[in-house]
């Protein structure tokens, strides 16, 4: 291979690296430059006093508070749905499923993980119409439908991360308790799960991040631009990512646009924070704090 070709390839690689760094620095820098100035209590609470807003005594009109509450509510609910089913499914896949059943189930989860979020949102919407027609006229696209759809979105991630966490344990660890006379369930509860807890936990945190950032699902299943703090499970609600999308297309004045930058920055900080927690957990730092025996 000629010397010149090698040089060109290496230079090309360096150009790629710096292009990527430049792109991401520009994106983050632009967001910080535009948004940092707008982040203050007024951005979040508008003209309402902080205490009144937190105690839900008064409505917050010109602030991000309802959207933040909505995001927290929808993420909590959906993760609440997805974690028990996901972890149970993951344990089944790793410890009980064998042969053909395991292959078929694994194929299903891979397909589910690949389904675009907008399609999951669409089926959530269809579910809402179906329930509205056949069960109760009170059911519309709402917080409940959104959190169910988001739970479906992250379910395959939780199952797979639990499964891989259990499967990657060394074979010795797997055999010791059984050799001492423990049953299969005892082995799972007292040995395998505690040993893989940090990996399972980091999978869950990544799933939370995915719930918090997803926009396509919630915009089809009940997130709206103005709803205030959600009052019931079957009410429409506001959410940060949807607010950002809404502002980008419908902003009326500079003030609103600035709050869009602020919201983007807040959402990004939340996601970055979750991401760091997840990577710290995988390194086992948080594991020791959680599971001290």
């Amino acid at each position: 291979m000629s010397w010149w070709l090698e040089r060109t390839m290496i230079i090309f690689c360096w150009i790629c690296g710096f292009t990527l760094l430049a792109a991401i620095t520009t994106i983050l820098g632009y967001l910080l430059y535009q948004g940092l100035g707008s982040i203050n209590l007024r951005l979040i609470f508008g003209n309402t006093s902080v205490v009144d807003a937190l105690l839900l005594r008064k409505h917050v009109f010109a602030g991000l508070f309802p959207a933040m509450v909505g995001t927290v509510a929808v993420v909590t609910l959906s993760v609440g749905f997805a974690i028990p089913v996901g972890i149970a499914g993951g344990i089944y896949m790793a410890e009980y499923a064998r042969g053909g059943v395991k292959a078929v189930l694994g194929f299903c989860f891979d397909i589910l993980a690949g389904v675009p979020s907008v399609v999951i949102g669409l089926s959530g919407f269809a579910l809402a119409i179906f329930l509205h027609r056949h069960f109760s006229a009170a059911i519309y696209p709402s917080l409940f439908i959104s959190s169910l759809s988001l739970a479906v979105l992250v379910l395959p991630y939780i199952i797979r991360s639990t499964q891989f966490a259990l499967e990657s344990l060394p074979a010795d660890t797997r055999r010791i308790a059984v050799a001492l006379g423990a049953t299969k369930l005892q082995n799972i509860v007292y040995v395998l799960i505690p040993r893989s807890l940090s990996a399972i936990f980091s999978g869950i945190i990544l799933a939370i991040g995915r719930c918090a950032e997803d926009t396509a699902v919630i915009m089809l299943t009940g997130a709206v631009a103005f709803a205030g703090v959600p009052k019931s499970l079957f009410a429409q609600y506001e959410a940060l990512p949807f607010y950002i999308y809404y502002i980008s297309s419908q902003y009326a004045n500079q003030q609103e646009l600035l709050s869009g930058y602020g919201a983007s920055l807040i959402l990004m900080l939340i996601c970055a924070l979750l991401f760091f927690v997840a990577s710290m957990t995988r390194k086992g730092v948080a594991c020791q704090a959680l599971y001290r025996t």
Partner: peptide
Amino acid sequence: EWILTLSALVSAFITVLIFVFLLIF
């Protein structure tokens, strides 16, 4: 074991269910 199996089956069933919903509508 029964609960674990059920969770896995439900999750896999959702994959099919989504497609069925789209087809029906």
